[in-house]
C-alpha cells in the first residue's frame, strides 16, 4: 500500500502541471488583463505595453508559463495585482483558514445529520414515512446551491431578520455566564453557509446509509446474529451499523470535493472571505497569479481528498487491495 500511495503521489506534480498550464492559457487568452484594471481610467496603450513588459506579461505563453513555473517551484507564487505589495501566499493563507474552518464544520454536519437520517429511513422502510423522507430528500438534493441561497437569504435575512445577510465573524461567539463560564455558541453568520454547504451532502449520505442498512439487514451474518439470540440493539450496533457505514468512506471523498467546489458559490454569494470567494474575485479582476495559486490549491485538495477516500476504503474493507492488480 505504501508503494501505491507513493505512486499516486508521484502523479500529483504531473496532474498539477497540466491543470496549471490549462488555467494559465485560459487566463491569458481570455479578454482583459489585470494591468488595465489596476491602471484605473488612464490607460495609454503605449504605457500599458511597457507596464506589461515590466510585470513579465509579454512574450509567448510558453515563456510566460515557464517563468511562472520556475518561480512557483521555488515557492514564489507571485504578487497580486489588485492587492499590490502583498505576495499571493500572504493573501491566500488567511482565506484558506476561513474556508478550512467552514469546510470542516460542514463535513461534520453532513455525517452527523446524514447517518441518523439514513438509519431512521431504513428502519421505517415499508411504512409511509420512508418514501416521504426519501422523496423530500431527493427534492432537496435536486436544488443547486446557486438557486438555494437567494430564497434562504430572502426568508431568514430579509423577511424575518433572523440572520445576517452575509459576512464572516469567526466560528464562535462567547456567552459569558456570570462572567466566569464561557459557552461558545456558533456565530450567526455560519447558519446560511452551512445550510448551503451541507444540504446536498447530508442528503447523499442519508440515501446511501439507508440503502446500505437495508441491504445489510438482509445479509446472512445478520440473520445468524439474530438466530444466536443476540439482542436487537447488539445486532444493530455490532453488525448492521458498522457494515452499513462502509460505503460512506467513498462518500467522504466526494463530500470533501463537493465542499471545495461549493466554496466558490457559497462564499461568493454570502460574502465570506474564504478562498472560493478569493478565486472568484481574482477571476473578475484577472489577477493572474492569484488565479494560478488558487487553482493549484484547489486541484491539490481534490486529488488528496480522493486519495484519502481510496486509502480509507482499503483500510476498512480488506477485500480492496489498492494497487494489487499491478502485482
Amino acid at each position: 500500500m505504501g508503494a501505491y500511495v507513493i505512486r499516486r503521489l508521484a502523479w500529483l506534480p504531473f496532474v498539477l502541471l497540466i491543470v496549471s498550464f490549462i488555467t494559465f492559457a485560459l487566463a491569458r487568452f481570455g479578454p482583459g488583463d489585470p494591468v488595465a484594471i489596476a491602471a484605473g481610467q488612464i490607460r495609454d496603450p503605449e504605457v500599458l505595453a511597457q507596464v506589461r513588459e515590466q510585470r513579465g506579461l509579454d512574450g509567448s505563453i510558453i515563456e510566460q508559463y515557464g517563468r511562472w513555473l520556475r518561480d512557483a517551484v521555488q515557492g514564489d507564487f507571485g504578487e497580486s495585482f489588485i492587492q499590490q505589495g502583498y505576495s499571493v501566499s500572504e493573501l491566500i493563507f488567511p482565506r484558506m483558514w476561513v474556508s478550512a474552518q467552514l469546510g470542516f464544520l460542514a463535513l461534520v454536519i453532513i455525517f452527523v445529520v446524514g447517518i441518523p437520517l439514513g438509519l431512521l429511513s431504513a428502519k421505517l422502510a415499508g411504512t409511509w414515512a420512508d418514501p416521504a423522507i426519501i422523496g423530500s430528500l431527493l427534492f432537496l438534493q435536486a436544488i443547486p446551491v446557486l438557486v438555494l441561497i437567494p430564497p434562504l437569504l430572502w426568508l431568514f435575512a430579509l423577511q424575518f431578520n433572523l440572520l445576517p445577510v452575509g459576512g464572516w465573524d469567526g466560528l464562535f461567539d462567547i456567552w459569558w455566564i456570570a462572567g466566569v463560564i464561557a459557552i461558545p455558541i456558533p456565530d450567526p453568520h455560519l447558519y446560511l453557509p452551512l445550510t448551503a454547504f451541507t444540504l446536498p451532502g447530508f442528503v447523499g449520505v442519508a440515501r446511501l446509509v439507508r440503502i446500505s442498512a437495508l441491504e445489510v439487514n438482509t445479509l446472512d451474518y445478520v440473520r445468524t446474529a439474530r438466530a444466536k439470540g443476540l439482542s436487537e440493539t447488539a445486532v444493530q450496533w455490532r453488525h448492521v451499523f458498522p457494515n452499513s457505514l462502509l460505503p460512506l468512506i467513498t462518500v467522504f471523498g466526494l463530500a470533501l470535493s463537493g465542499i471545495i467546489e461549493g466554496a466558490l458559490f457559497v462564499e461568493t454569494l454570502l460574502g465570506i472571505p474564504g478562498i472560493g470567494r478569493f478565486l472568484f474575485e481574482a477571476v473578475t479582476s484577472r489577477d493572474y497569479d492569484v488565479i494560478m495559486a488558487t487553482t493549484v490549491i484547489f486541484a491539490t485538495a481534490f486529488i488528496l481528498a480522493n486519495l484519502v477516500a481510496e486509502l480509507m476504503y482499503g483500510l476498512v474493507d480488506p477485500r480492496v487491495r489498492l494497487g494489487a492488480s499491478r502485482n
Binding site: F104, L105, W168, D169, G170, L171, F172, P184, D187
Partner: peptide, 23 residues
Amino acid sequence: VLVVGGLSAVLLLSGGGDDGGDA
C-alpha cells in the same frame, strides 16, 4: 457533539484559531 465541542475548545484555546475579533 462531543467531538465538535472538543475541537472548538481546542480552536478557541489555541488563540489565533479564531478569526472573529469577538472571542
